[in-house]
Amino acid sequence: MSLSLQLDASGDLKHFLTVEGLPYEMLVSILDTAESMTGVTVRSIKKVPLLRGKTIANLFFEPSTRTRTTFELAAKRLSADVLNIALDSAATLKGESLLDTLRNLEAMYVDMFVVRHSHSGTAHFIAQHVAPHIRVVNAGDGRHAHPTQALLDVFTIRRHKPDFGSLCVAIVGDILHSRVARSQIHALNILLTGEVRVIAPRTLLPVDVESFGVRVFYDLEDGLRDVDVVIMLRLQHERMQSGHLPSEYEYYHHYGLTRDRLQIAKPDALVMHPGPINRGVEMSSSVADSPQSVILEQVSHGIAIRMAVMSMALARTPTTP
């Protein structure tokens, strides 16, 4: 279902909604295209005319400075015109006004919606209801998917450790509420990663998480053994109020990544984080700023991945509807 929605009849990318079910070749093709996009970002004029004349609307129903900025920058590097529309989820609780918003933007000849929303399935919903020439890119929907983030993560891993079959990757933290983790797990499994682990207390793990194709650890030190990549997830403060965790202190004590704990992983293990980091909650500053940390690389790769996805989805679309 998702697959038929995001690929067209000839198997090309139409919308980008989820990593789940994406063919291996398509995923690699996005990574390869992103690789070529990285060249654009290091030269004097950081812009190519690929999407000149296209209009991309960033529809963010949930505040996010960084993801929105990288999407915006990616679109601008491709010479598209960008509209940033910040919307309050509460104002669009009724489906009709969400669709009304879409219709209004369609009337302004927008070619692509980049959508972030606090409810799972929103990007699917929008993709099902937009005019046929419009493309939709999911910038995060509820707990469901954040596909561009996952791809920039595997892109970063590939640059350092391209042989996924021999890798052991551990994802640590709030898997339950994380769209990033879900998409990462799918991406790593599509790339046939040797082993994917999740490390968290049970209150932060989805039911039946094993069915995603991961090994579950409740103990961080057990889970870090022989790991090539450690991905730390952001912990939201509300998890303490909602009864998922007793305190940030206890979380850091058991699941925080410290220098000593990082020693348990392979000596050249990469440390990643989708940001923004809560220093002293998810990891210590010494780890975040260590040479093993590729957190800032992730940010720059985010632009290349988003450029790749936008240009692939907008290929072969007419300039006028």
């Binding site: 789940e20 799972s120 399935g121 509820g142 469901h144 769209r179 879900r182 039946d208 069915s211 995603f212």
Partner: peptide, 13 residues
Amino acid sequence: HEGRVASRMGLAG
């Protein structure tokens, strides 16, 4: 339903 499918879809079960 809380289970495999809702977990994957990120829906509260």
